[in-house]
Amino acid sequence: MSVKAIFAIILTAVFINNYVLQQFLGICPFLGVSKKFDSALGMSIAVIFVMLLATVVTYPIQHFVLDQNGLGYMQTIVFILVIAALVQLVEIVLKKHIPGLHASLGVYLPLITTNCAVLGVCIANVDNYIDAATFGAGYVQALANAFGSGVGFLMAMLLFSGIRARIEDNDAPPAFKGMPITLISAAILSVAFFGFAGVIENIFG
């Protein structure tokens, strides 16, 4: 597995297959928590962390436990429980050992359990990268994809919190005030990301 390929996976996940703007995963926090820059940042860092951690745990589970025992159909139920348990565990550990970090990230952690981006990245990783014969290469790719997806989420959140701060006081038509104008801004941001399509393939191709 070359470093180049890893970079290509990460950059693709950030710019081209951006989870929020192109794949529509994690829209709830994207619309709900992007109002303030600080909360957008906190939420995104928590998401990156949980995405990586969830992939670290769920990928081996799929590879060594589910696939080898013909239990593929238990994927959904096992993954969501593992994520829920992990999030709880992280919260307890943070609270006890790093209270400072818990104070800033703690409130976002429980929300992440029901964030479809996290479950989505775990399922996408086993769908795309699992290889029955070898474990290592697919695992590295999966982790790269998890990291890239998280960073993509962070980028979308931060960009969008800036946009929202500006449109907040704008004079939109009454019916469009609030959620509709927010969604239309998201549409324009999403168009902007089209500009990246092909760029990564051409850099690394």
Partner: peptide, 26 residues
């Protein structure tokens, strides 16, 4: 993808208008 956001935004706006809701403010 952008069309999804756009149509969804317009639909919510249409519902707001039709239902004479006060603009959904959260």
């Amino acid at each position: 993808a952008p069309g999804g956001f756009f149509v969804f935004g317009c639909l919510i706006a249409a519902v707001n208008k039709w239902a004479r809701h006060k603009p959904v403010k959260r």
